[in-house]
Amino acid sequence: MSHNYRLEQADPNSAVRALSFFGFVIVAALSLAIIFAIIFSSYFGTPRDQSDFMMMTIIITACVAGPMGALAAQNQYRVDRYHATLEAMASTDPLTGLLNRRAFKILANEEISRMQRTDHGVCIVTFDIDNFKRVNDAHGHAFGDRVLTSIANISHAALRGPFDRLGRWGGEEFVILLTNVNIDQAQSVCERLRERIASTDLTFNGTTVRVTASFGIAPLTKGCRLEESLEAADQMLYRAKSAGRNKVMSVAPLKSVA
């Protein structure tokens, strides 16, 4: 899957550190150049006046400091990119490229904090693939992994880019954070996604299957704990399963707690 999520933005201080290191290298190179200039003068004679000496020093400094500084900055950039890659790996599911459970919880709790300053509605959705074990048993786990990746792609395409958050909760279960929506709007979003999943042919290595998904929706409200809303969404998911699967169930808004 090509959609990779990052838990954190790139470190805004990385460029500052690179420039600081570059400056340090320049100073070190300048000192080294002066030493070389003195040694050069001891062998070949001191320039006739101070301006010639300074010009010689500047030329040596440029020859030494330029390449050293460029190499140092490039190395620092690579180090920062490496750390950013590690952060991304720590926050994404390796199979689907979606947010993993840890990353999703962090982002959801950040959204709860923002809700203290705004009045926009937020809903938590949990959904999973119906009878997924049958898919694995019939076609193998590699085939099942392809199904999971396809469902992740379908779900990602159906959501509103950076405004909604999609994660893999574990196994065949996924979780969505819908922002700026009420329960009715969240229900509509999930119904469209449910229909899209159910109507999509998934073909791998000449084998075609169709799967369905069941959805549970619960609101996030000011003062409510994330775990409380997730548990409520799970209860709705189980109710959707009990009602025959391939359904969307939602609950009324939760009462805020102190």
Score class of each variant (00 low, 15 high):
152 A>P: 01
217 I>N: 04
185 Q>C: 10
188 S>A: 09
212 T>K: 10
173 E>T: 04
171 G>M: 07
193 L>E: 01
169 W>S: 04
196 R>T: 06
203 T>H: 03
212 T>R: 03
201 D>E: 14
180 N>L: 08
219 P>T: 15
178 L>W: 09
200 T>E: 14
172 E>T: 03
186 A>L: 13
147 V>F: 02
211 V>H: 00
187 Q>H: 14
145 D>H: 03
164 D>W: 03
144 G>R: 00
210 R>Y: 02
205 N>W: 14
192 R>N: 13
149 T>Y: 02
170 G>M: 06
173 E>I: 09
168 R>K: 12
173 E>Q: 06
208 T>C: 02
159 L>H: 09
184 D>N: 07
149 T>F: 03
215 F>S: 09
154 I>G: 02
160 R>N: 02
200 T>Q: 14
169 W>F: 13
160 R>M: 06
189 V>E: 08
222 K>R: 09
165 R>Q: 12
196 R>V: 08
140 G>D: 05
159 L>A: 04
216 G>R: 11
146 R>D: 01
182 N>D: 15
143 F>C: 01
215 F>I: 06
176 I>Y: 08
160 R>E: 13
191 E>W: 14
210 R>H: 05
144 G>H: 00
209 V>N: 05
204 F>N: 01
142 A>M: 10
206 G>I: 08
181 V>N: 07
163 F>G: 13
166 L>I: 11
172 E>D: 10
137 D>V: 08
168 R>Q: 12
219 P>A: 12
188 S>D: 11
175 V>E: 10
190 C>H: 11
144 G>E: 00
193 L>P: 00
174 F>P: 01
148 L>C: 04
179 T>I: 15
152 A>D: 10
210 R>I: 05
197 I>K: 12
195 E>S: 14
142 A>C: 09
196 R>Y: 04
211 V>A: 07
199 S>Q: 15
158 A>D: 11
209 V>K: 10
143 F>Q: 04
220 L>H: 01
209 V>C: 02
164 D>N: 05
164 D>C: 04
184 D>Y: 11
174 F>G: 06
219 P>Y: 12
170 G>A: 01
209 V>A: 05
204 F>Y: 12
135 V>I: 15
182 N>F: 13
182 N>E: 06
151 I>F: 06
175 V>G: 08
198 A>E: 13
200 T>S: 13
142 A>G: 05
140 G>K: 15
